[in-house]
Write a protein that binds this DNA or RNA. Structure first.
Lengths: 343, 343
DNA sequence: CTGTTAGCGCATTCAA
DNA sequence: TTGAATGCGCTAACAG
């Protein structure tokens, strides 16, 4: 075996026409007689025939690859989502191309353009939308081009683009968390609110505030600290809280890894979690499940989101953007055991 | 703008031939007069021309995508590696397709075949080799086909396939870990050795044993327990150790997540780590850095491995398989503080 | 049900 | 340096 057998070779060996060989192997609308099909398949096997995807793509206008754009593959939320996408893709005989923006949200449009050039069949766009309007415009323009070319697009985040979207109910989750923490007796809260321009972070803050308000607790502006969305951001924000607002009894970090940093910061200030201060996160990262104390958090099943996104992007649907909401569930751990009466 | 402008359209608008347009845009051997080139480029911009990758691939025989095959994208080691690959790929203008075998090592060959059909430019095969010989044969056969077609392949693991390989020095790392633990005064070891057929796990065990032997410590067979390579495997193996060999003072889990499970198992048996038993892992997963106790482990910079792999797979090299060794570094944490004299 | 034929968009040969 | 013509491998009309 050297270069590659082509469909033409297969047809010749099988003694049929090119078209018949194509139909037998690919299975088009037309059917092929059992005997001929058998002959073709046998010839293909003998010749170790491999279809040339590029040629097929040229005809069809798209390939069997779905592109996945995400902010950071190392983040367990997104690697979980990628895992779900890949698993579902395998079931459908699709390949998955992944592009990481590494949190440079402006890169999303570039990667959409890249997938368009590749003639990928569909794109899944994961990760929170931001408040950056000009960027969103460029992204939407690229998406429109991709769709004009016959590609399908699904976003997993907020409903901010004119595409099918799986919306994660950050608000609802944060609201329930707030209520639960209030029930546990906490009253003086601080929120490590993450980046100002990240909608997921904003939604979690907003939901949390709403939940507290429902319990008659107001969240003072001074008790909201912005920072990066990662472990170090949580550390710094918590340090600031401890410096400036020493009297809080519960801290909500809008992301598990920020919560991790917050706990580390508390420790390095000589405070124990949860004895001196309670901490809750958001995301329920698997690798943190064995942490001690077990972090109170809000579970998002990102693998499931990935699977749903792939299914959605494959289901035709021509009648305007669809929205599917996915809830999340509060998990109480030992990091918020309930407040003992103070003093 | 509707369907898509083709190179033909660009040529027409620019008032040149197809060939000239192709040469101006792609930049072939032939050069194009400055003025004509400018005209072509302008026309391309006006028409929002996007090259059809499929057509180009048909001519060239390969595209600008590199395939990455790994056992599990959710494992931080592999998501880190993927991150490195993607980062380097971006610098080279390449896309990355990722396939997860979900630890079904027989799937590797299937995905190599898949990437071959896609006419991908290169494949990076990450993850430990196993002792399964027939599987390895099938995989090698698919790799040979891929290479016969002009593709390049690099493996990151053990040097078991006839391809360029980046070898992770598991043995050396485990050996140094053993020596270090011995220096800390530990004498009675158990090893949670992971799956019997996984070479990485075997190498870590072997290195650890060698290291102990160098310190005059023999590792009894009964103190080696096999299990799955994940958190739950570590939990079960540790439970078995505690049941059957209560007297160990230090446990080495060949993988960080197994160590995590081991610590959880110890706790649920009423034992404190490290007070009652010390635990060490392997891998230095980032998300575990804030764990308490801080896990003693062996650091592998998987992001770097990914970057190196991509560079290697792009560098031509026709003279038989190359091997590059990458070391790893022992990190001591509070999970192995040093042994207090017993009794 | 099967065969013939005409491109898909591009890079590259061969002429000019 | 430029242009005209060819064919990569395949699918989908269009005949039969």
């Amino acid at each position: 075996m050297e270069g590659n057998a082509t469909l033409f070779d297969v047809a010749r060996v099988a003694g049929v026409s090119l078209a018949t060989a194509s139909r037998a192997i690919n299975g088009s609308t037309r059917t092929v007689g059992a005997e001929l099909r058998e002959r073709v398949l046998r010839a293909a096997r003998e010749l170790d025939y491999v279809p040339n995807v590029a040629a097929r793509t040229m005809k069809r206008g798209h390939d069997d690859v779905v592109g996945l754009i995400l902010p950071d593959i190392v983040d367990p939320y997104f690697s979980g989502l990628a895992s779900g996408v890949m698993r579902a893709a395998e079931e459908h005989g699709l390949m998955v191309s992944i592009a990481s923006t590494r949190r440079r949200s402006g890169k999303e449009a570039d990667y959409v353009a890249g997938f368009r050039r590749q003639r990928n069949r569909a794109i899944i766009l994961a990760g929170s939308r931001t408040t950056n309007q000009p960027e969103a415009g460029l992204l939407q323009a690229e998406i429109d081009r991709f769709e004009a070319q016959g590609g399908r697009v699904v976003a997993v985040s907020q409903r901010k683009l004119a595409v099918d979207t799986i919306v994660v109910e950050n608000r609802q989750g944060a609201r329930e968390l707030a209520t639960g923490l209030s029930d546990l007796g906490y009253r003086d809260f601080a929120v490590l609110a993450g980046p100002r321009d990240l909608l997921s972070a904003r939604d979690r803050l907003a939901g949390f505030r709403t939940g507290l308000a429902g319990c008659g607790i107001e969240l003072a502006k001074e008790n909201i600290v912005n920072s990066e969305f990662d472990r170090d951001g949580g550390y710094e924000a918590m340090a600031q809280v401890l410096r400036e607002r020493g009297d809080v009894d519960c801290v909500f970090a809008v992301n598990d890894f920020m919560a991790l940093g917050a706990i580390a910061a508390a420790r390095s200030h000589g405070l124990d979690v949860p004895r001196h201060v309670a901490v809750a996160g958001f995301g329920d990262s698997l690798s943190l499940r064995d942490m001690s104390p077990r972090l109170t958090t809000v579970r998002i099943d990102s693998e499931r989101l990935g699977r749903l996104a792939l299914e959605m992007v494959l289901s035709a649907g021509g009648e305007g953007p669809r929205t599917r909401r996915e809830g999340c569930q509060v998990i109480f751990g030992t990091s918020t055991p309930g407040r003992r009466r103070k003093r």
